[in-house]
C-alpha cells in the first residue's frame, strides 16, 4: 500500500472537432500542468478561431480551489477570445464538495456529458 507510485506529468491533449476544442482531463492534474493547459488553450483558441471549448472532467476525482480557479480563468479567457466554454461531466461527489468548499464557479456553463455540452454550444451558436 505504501509502495510509491510515480505520478507522471503528461501533457493534456486538446482535440479539434470542427469548430470546437475538446479537452479531456484525467485523474491527477498537477498545478503546473493545469496552468500549462490554460496557456495552450488560449493560444489554440486565438490561432484557430474556434467558437467553443468543451472541458470534460468526468475522469477527474477532485476539483480543489486551485483547479477550480484555473477552469474559471480558462472560461473567462476564452470568452475574451470570442469562444464559449462548457464544463462537462462533473461527478456528483465533486459537485457536493465544491459547494461545501465555497467554490460555486459562477459564470461557468456546465453540461452533464460531452454530447450535451456539444448541444449547448451548437444551440448558442451563431
Amino acid at each position: 500500500m505504501n509502495e510509491p507510485v510515480p505520478v507522471h506529468p503528461a501533457p493534456v491533449p486538446v482535440l479539434a472537432l470542427g469548430d470546437i476544442l475538446l479537452v479531456s482531463l484525467q485523474g491527477e492534474l498537477h498545478d503546473g500542468l493545469a496552468e500549462q493547459l490554460q496557456q495552450d488553450l488560449s493560444h489554440r483558441i486565438a490561432t484557430t478561431g474556434v467558437s467553443g471549448v468543451v472541458i470534460d472532467i468526468s475522469g477527474v476525482d477532485i476539483v480543489d480551489s486551485f483547479l477550480g480557479r484555473v477552469l474559471a480563468e480558462i472560461a473567462s479567457t476564452a470568452r475574451l477570445l470570442a469562444a464559449r466554454t462548457v464544463l462537462a461531466g462533473m461527478r456528483p461527489a465533486v459537485a457536493i464538495t465544491l459547494v461545501e468548499l465555497g467554490l460555486v464557479l459562477p459564470g461557468l456553463t456546465t453540461a452533464l456529458d460531452v454530447d450535451r455540452a456539444m448541444e449547448v454550444l451548437s444551440q448558442r451558436g451563431r
Binding site: I62, R91, A93, I96, T97
Partner: peptide, 13 residues
C-alpha cells in the same frame, strides 16, 4: 465516495 472526495479535496487545499 462523497466523504473520500471531501477528504482528498481538504488534503489538497
Amino acid at each position: 465516495l462523497v466523504q473520500q472526495t471531501k477528504l482528498v479535496t481538504a488534503a489538497s487545499e
